[in-house]
Computed example of a mutant assay.
Amino acid sequence: MKVTLDLALLRDAVAWTGRAVASRPVSPVLSGMLLEAEGDKLRLSAYDYQISAQCDITAQVAEPGRALLPARLLVEVCKSLPRKAVELSLSEAEMIVRCGTAEFGLLTMPVDDYPKLPAPPNPSAVVSGALLQQVAGQVTAAASKDTTLPMLCVVRFDIEGENVWAAATDRYRIAGRTFAWSTIPPQGKKAAPPAFMMVPAAELESTVKGYGSGQAEIGWNDKLVSISGAGRLTTIRMLGEDYIDYRARLKLDYQTWAQVDGASLIAAVKRIGLVAEKSTAVRLSFSDGQVLVEAGGGGLGRATESVEADVSGPPVTVGFQPSFLLDGLVGVDTPRVRLGMNQPAKPVMVTEDADHPEYRYLVMALRLG
């Protein structure tokens, strides 16, 4: 195997593919990244039984071949190389990496022991990569990080033709987003895929970062989700189908609504949150013409700040854990944010400034003393 290629292409491909390498692989061979050179391309692959990643990049292939290299070391080596063309050449059990006057000899791993990657489902829909990235960014923040509760560590996609709901929850908040994609007619007489996907949130968030430009094709069956586009292919193993009825909880029936500039409210919550202790809340009081943001009064001190707001309905004061509220506010992509409230201890709805918002974030309010 002998190839020459652009450093920027290699560096980007190695970094993206390396996301699929587990930090604690179940088998030593899964700590490797597979390189396969043929024709005019170099393919990089990684797999950990939960997620697989393949990335094809253009290369001058003098000698085709394949090799398995330690993934983490390869990522770091590519980061360190000077900005020049890179040559990779396999010499017995060593991969020679030359770039300018720098040369590395990386010991290879047993390539024949590397497992076969799963076959991806046929594509069933196509969507803008930028939109997919935006949706994932809006909802994954609400997914649980507690891996002992795997069914809360997912993003649920409910599919109704070209209309899709995406949602995540950790029991303390729910983030939901509607969007549209274009369907792809099924090939042959294959059975229609399930009308939902349960995708692990961490894997989804890291994966979609590679599809920010162009279109992404989505495929799914009862076991796997696939995302492909721009020379990249990812498969992610799905979890089961049990999930809460989140759409019933994301309705917009609230007594009090407030419209406020999102950037101003985010800045105020961040500032006032500096004096909020772990066991206390940031309090937001909504009344005519303003929202008063308050925190503290304990061992760290206190702080207040008012932000202009259009408030309709009875005045109400609610308390939040600052990070939970901020996760919802930053997900709004309109300049003004809408907040819907009923009573001080009831959940609060955060949406974009629209009559039929695509993004909805329901966050549990803390009981105020």
Rank of each mutant, 00 (worst) to 15 (best):
D146W: 07
V199N: 02
R360C: 00
S226R: 00
P115T: 09
L284N: 00
K190R: 13
D353E: 14
M349F: 02
I57F: 08
G301Q: 01
R232D: 09
P344F: 01
G188K: 08
S31I: 05
N342W: 04
R249L: 15
D6H: 05
E358G: 13
P315C: 03
L90H: 06
Q50S: 14
K2D: 15
S52R: 05
E352Q: 14
R302P: 00
V14F: 02
C78T: 14
A281K: 01
T234R: 04
P322D: 09
G328C: 06
G297I: 01
P186S: 11
P344R: 02
A53V: 12
V139G: 05
L9E: 14
A192V: 05
G65Q: 10
V154R: 07
V21M: 01
P335A: 13
A136D: 03
G289L: 00
S182R: 13
A263D: 15
L10S: 04
E92T: 14
S31L: 02
K270Y: 04
Y211H: 14
L106N: 04
V293A: 01
I57R: 00
S206P: 06
M1L: 13
Y211W: 13
G176E: 11
L362N: 00
G137E: 12
A15Q: 12
A93F: 11
R232T: 11
G65P: 12
K145A: 15
